[in-house]
Design a protein around this nucleic acid. Structure first.
Lengths: 122, 122, 122, 122
DNA sequence: GTGGTCTAGACCACG
DNA sequence: GTGGTCTAGACCACC
């Protein structure tokens, strides 16, 4: 559970948790078959409400990244490396479309965006 | 007043208005010195409440993109092309830092991001 | 008519005019007996509405700094130097009470205020 | 919530609230980490609309004096004594420049201002 | 006519 | 229960 939570962020906490675990699974940091910690334990670790954790877990299940075995816990879905990459790209592309729409609204060309991106990416 | 409002978007309406006018000013579509429509008229055109328009206008003023003359109206600030580009880049870089942090959390390298970006930008 | 007007200031224009003429009379820059310019001419010079000038003139008359001779114009009241100083101090003290109340609300002592004041006064 | 509101003042209510809370924080009367009352409760206490309170709270947040945690409440920022003094002086100096410009427009010297100030400060 | 302020009341997401 | 947003409608000062 290597997760950073910002209370003052505009992003809901449950979504911060969802995004970070989601990224960790698709990066391969969390391997298929292994279990996530019980929600109550996660809630204590992350210093948030049980409800908040539950909401994040539900999002993960809805995205097909984990599955629940009633009475046993939540387990990370077993995805092939190809599946992971595909899911990762789907997720990112969805966000990227929103991002580029924003950049374009300011009249930026692709080249200008790439130029700025290089600076930001360090 | 060429503005598209989505009521279903998660983004507050006032911010949608702010972002679009902001982009239009920085793109040079709205020239310095000219006046924005009166808030009440804009409210009718955009089919939103007067207060929602006002909130957007206030953000624009706070960003130095317009100035208000009480009893006369709101006018677009006279910015040099350099100022516009600088302000534009500031605005975009702020957003881009958030975007890239997201991409990186999935383990994407700069080159991968640029590759995806090219596809999305069409 | 040596008057600087700011459209963007929060202060009403008529009050800006009033304050500046008021100060000039009490400083002795405008001498008793001399006439102010006709409101229409003043309006043109100052680039403001006739109504605005009229409102400033009315305030001046109410303060006893000018008097109107119907059909002839507005004249600066003849005040002895002592009267001027007294009026000036009255005017300033009224404002100063408001100002000091503000400073004190932050817990500043008299000495601290004087210290800051010296810096600001250059 | 020790706040005095004047309905007859020319100053907007939300600004009166802002200024007084601002002063209390910078004086150290309200300590970092503690929470302000919920806006709805404050509205009842102060006998004003919820929106008026909210506007004051927004100004406080913009000034870096409080931070908002959606769904939890608004908390007073943790500022070091040095930060407080610096912010206090910034705030006061901004106002003092306006005040002194007014005094000077009447031809008062620094010494005369200080003399009057001593009287007013009691 | 313009913007500036304030009100009362409503619905929503979040925790 | 908390803040975040939005609405409709009102009154005021200023120009």
């Amino acid at each position: 559970m290597n997760i950073a939570i910002s209370n003052t962020s505009e992003k809901p906490i449950y979504q911060q948790i969802f995004e970070q675990i989601s990224a960790q699974i698709l990066k391969g940091e969390l391997e298929g078959g292994y279990s996530l910690p019980p929600i109550r334990q996660a809630a204590v670790e992350l210093q948030v409400s049980v409800i908040t954790v539950k909401k994040a877990w539900e999002e993960l299940e809805r995205s097909g990244l984990i599955y629940t075995v009633t009475g046993k816990g939540c387990f990370i879905a077993e995805l092939s490396p190809e599946d992971k990459i595909q899911k990762r790209n789907e997720t990112i592309l969805k966000q990227m479309e929103i991002d580029t729409a924003y950049y374009r609204s300011f009249g930026l060309t692709l080249d200008e965006v790439i130029e700025l991106l290089k600076d930001v990416y360090e």
